[in-house]
């Protein structure tokens, strides 16, 4: 007796693969309508103000969301995403200095995020609206303020290979639609092209790369 099951399994897999390939080829690079625009944003902790009695406000968890802003000297941008008491931040001056930092958010809204090469961000999230703090990265020490921002603002990242070059891009998409980004090619940082904030697509050396929002 020859069991047909394994062959059928293979056959179904081949058909599935071929049909997806045909679908991809037919639709080209246009992605199917994703819900990125219509995705229901988690309500900004609606119960937090209600639950906290007037006497004890700091027990509420850190409000999840994105925060973006600039350093006080206006030379660099900072984007922070907070989720479930964890935070990821991107610091970027748009030319040469950048750092990805991660860490936890304490109950009082304080955070100490760390990144490569001793980079450090110390900040405090106040009233769920604003993060004020300092960044130590690339030899500098700068104070910054990041305000709560709605989509598509926040930190973005893209990694890709374009013509044998390894690309690593980071962007801060600011509240006003401005962007500060660095594109590192094989380890050498440089200015980044603009990304389309709706789709995350940017053109690098004639190729399309897709940047994604970064979450903790």
């Amino acid at each position: 007796m020859k069991r047909p099951g394994p062959l059928l399994t293979l056959l179904v897999g081949v058909l599935l693969g071929l049909s997806m390939l045909a679908f991809n080829t037919a639709t080209g690079t246009r992605s199917a309508p994703s819900s990125s625009a219509a995705e229901p944003e988690r309500p900004p902790s609606a119960e937090a103000p209600a639950a906290s009695s007037p006497a004890a406000p700091p027990r509420a968890p850190a409000p999840d969301g994105a925060y973006t802003g600039r350093t006080d000297d206006d030379s660099a941008a900072v984007a922070v995403t907070v989720r479930d008491r964890r935070a990821v931040a991107y610091y970027c001056d748009g030319r040469a200095r950048e750092s990805w930092l991660r860490g936890e958010v304490r109950d009082d809204g304080g955070m100490r995020l760390t990144g490569k090469d001793g980079a450090e961000l110390n900040g405090t999230l106040r009233q769920g609206r604003r993060i004020r703090g300092t960044v130590d990265a690339g030899g500098g020490h700068q104070a910054f303020t990041a305000d709560r921002a709605e989509k598509p603002s926040g930190p973005y990242r893209a990694t890709a290979d374009v013509r044998d070059t390894t690309i690593d891009g980071g962007w801060v998409v600011l509240k006003d639609g401005g962007q500060v980004g660095i594109l590192t090619r094989d380890g050498t940082p440089g200015p980044a092209p603009r990304i389309d904030p709706e789709t995350g697509v940017a053109a690098v050396d004639g190729r399309r790369i897709t940047a994604r929002p970064v979450t903790p």
Partner: peptide, 9 residues
């Protein structure tokens, strides 16, 4: 191609 289909959600 760099990009392809995406799924809603």
């Amino acid at each position: 191609t760099g990009t392809a289909f995406n799924l809603a959600g």
